[in-house]
Simulated scan of single mutants.
Amino acid sequence: MRKWIIIVLIALVASYIGYNYIYQDHRNIEKESAIFTMTSSEITQLFSKDIESAEKQFLNKTIEVSGLISEINTNDITINDSVFCQFLNTINNSLEKNNTVIIKGRVIGYDDLLEQVKLDQCSIIK
């Protein structure tokens, strides 16, 4: 009887640890500090030269990117036609094309067809 209680307790503890490992809290990119700060042309140049090494360096990292707004929609901004920034919420209406902006977000990859670095969970710093 005592062995069964110990086995059940071990199974419960293992289940609890496994559940917490699999279902971890999501990252809040807005509260994280940026690991890298650069202009849109700098990061695009790094990706266009060598995608593999740039992905190793930047993929899933929080960065700040600055540049001019070339396109603006309700949930995304394109900076200098080279960095695509997707937001979780709608964007502030005070932003306009050709304004300088600094955006913080998580690098999710590089679209070599459009030659754009992709960021998600973005927030406007300035």
Rank of each mutant, 00 (worst) to 15 (best):
residue 33 S to H: 14
residue 105 G to I: 01
residue 92 N to G: 08
residue 27 R to S: 08
residue 69 I to Q: 03
residue 110 Y to R: 01
residue 51 I to L: 00
residue 44 T to D: 06
residue 101 V to K: 02
residue 109 G to Y: 02
residue 60 N to A: 06
residue 125 I to K: 13
residue 108 I to D: 08
residue 93 N to M: 15
residue 109 G to Q: 09
residue 40 S to I: 12
residue 26 H to N: 09
residue 48 S to D: 05
residue 50 D to E: 10
residue 33 S to I: 15
residue 93 N to V: 13
residue 121 Q to P: 03
residue 49 K to R: 11
residue 116 Q to C: 07
residue 43 I to C: 02
residue 77 I to P: 03
residue 57 Q to R: 13
residue 65 V to F: 06
residue 11 A to R: 01
residue 92 N to R: 05
residue 75 N to L: 08
residue 27 R to T: 03
residue 61 K to G: 06
residue 107 V to L: 13
residue 18 G to L: 15
residue 113 L to P: 07
residue 126 K to G: 15
residue 5 I to N: 05
residue 19 Y to K: 04
residue 38 M to S: 05
residue 24 Q to D: 10
residue 6 I to V: 14
residue 76 D to G: 09
residue 95 L to E: 07
residue 50 D to G: 01
residue 93 N to H: 08
residue 42 E to V: 04
residue 85 C to W: 00
residue 19 Y to P: 02
residue 32 E to W: 03
residue 53 S to I: 14
residue 94 S to C: 06
residue 84 F to H: 04
residue 63 I to G: 02
residue 99 N to K: 13
residue 39 T to E: 06
residue 51 I to G: 02
residue 75 N to Y: 15
residue 53 S to Y: 02
residue 80 N to P: 06
residue 70 S to F: 08
residue 29 I to M: 10
residue 72 I to H: 01
residue 30 E to G: 06
residue 111 D to W: 14
residue 43 I to P: 00
residue 85 C to K: 01
residue 28 N to C: 00
residue 43 I to H: 06
residue 120 D to F: 04
residue 49 K to E: 13
residue 112 D to F: 01
residue 94 S to V: 12
